Amino acid sequence: MCPTTGPFVSGTVDDFRLLARTRLNAFPHTEVPDAPGIRRAAVLLCVVGQREGSPAVVVIKRAYRGRNAGQWGLPGGRLDEGETAEQAVLRELHEELGLTATPADLLGRLDDFPAASGFVITPFVAALPDAAELRPSPAEVHSVHLVELARLAADDVPHWVAPHAARRQPELGDAAAATIPEEVGLLQMRLGDGMTIHAPTGAMLWQFREVVLLGRDHAAVRVAHFTQPDWTQH
């Protein structure tokens, strides 16, 4: 029996796949309906096995050109005309990183995120056996980072700071961050040195962590209201 609550503790992709599918099937994700002016995009929280180390989620830093230059992100992008979100996210995964996934590799989805840029982003979750095929496109990807699931689930990763204190690589002391009430703060996912990620990407990583890795209560994990720094709104 796969647990519906509690942290993910297994070290295998197969066990993650079972847990994620179970928890995502039980998660009542929200969808943003079509409306004039809305543009659609899809991203993938892609978990891969590692030859040395535990399963990890793929995070990218975008190339220093074009839209979202130099920002942290997840594989994905805008939908082409006539394309579904599922089709788009699989295409973008291959174009950006050289990884091939099929619809059967998609384990479920999280909440649509209405970004301040005007895009509604649909996040999917997938699991692949390994990252051996990783071939990042230099035109779209500056660097690829494999964040182990244990790290993403660690207590010291999410921080809440005053919105005016956000910088591209902020490093506020823990005591300062702790004084900011969660409900009025801006989320920072501090995954490592020089790797502080805000919404929208940070919000989706946080929801993935809360829903899939930690099995938290659904009512407490909504993210559509999360504040975005000015530089992510383009």
Results as ranks from 00 to 15, higher is better:
E83S: 01
A63H: 08
A42P: 02
G37T: 13
G77M: 05
P75F: 06
L205D: 04
G66S: 12
F119W: 02
D174W: 09
G82H: 11
F27R: 06
P33Q: 12
G70W: 10
G118C: 04
L19D: 12
T196L: 03
A139F: 03
R62H: 08
T102E: 14
P158H: 12
A88H: 02
L146N: 13
P103Q: 02
E96R: 01
N25D: 15
R222I: 00
V58D: 12
P33W: 12
A219N: 09
P103C: 03
L74R: 07
R62A: 05
V144R: 04
A162F: 07
E81G: 01
I197C: 11
L152R: 09
L45Y: 07
E95Y: 00
A132C: 04
S54V: 08
A203H: 11
E171F: 04
P163C: 00
V125G: 13
P103D: 03
E92D: 08
G192K: 06
A101E: 10
T179K: 09
L93W: 02
T84W: 03
L128A: 09
D155I: 00
E140N: 11
R65E: 14
G11H: 11
D174I: 02
L107R: 05
T232V: 09
D217T: 08
T179Q: 14
W160A: 07
G11Y: 05
G202C: 03
A101P: 09
D80Y: 10
I38N: 14
V89Q: 07
Q207R: 05
L186C: 11
A41P: 04
D174N: 06
A104S: 13
G108W: 09
V9R: 15
A20S: 15
V161R: 01
D193V: 06
L187N: 09
D156I: 00
A116S: 14
L186Y: 11
Q233E: 12
A139P: 01
R17I: 07
P75D: 14
D15A: 12
T227V: 05
E83V: 00
A150F: 11
I60D: 02
R168Y: 14
N68W: 08
H234Y: 08
G66E: 11
R23D: 07
L44P: 02
R17T: 15
E210Y: 07
V125N: 11
Q233M: 11
T227K: 12
H145W: 10
L187I: 07
A165V: 00
M204W: 08
E133P: 05
N25A: 15
R135I: 00
P123A: 09
L110V: 02
F16Q: 05
E95K: 01
H159P: 01
D15Y: 00
L107I: 08
G82I: 04
D156L: 00
L128Q: 08
L191M: 04
A26M: 05
A115K: 03
P33Y: 13
I60M: 09
H94L: 05
M1I: 03
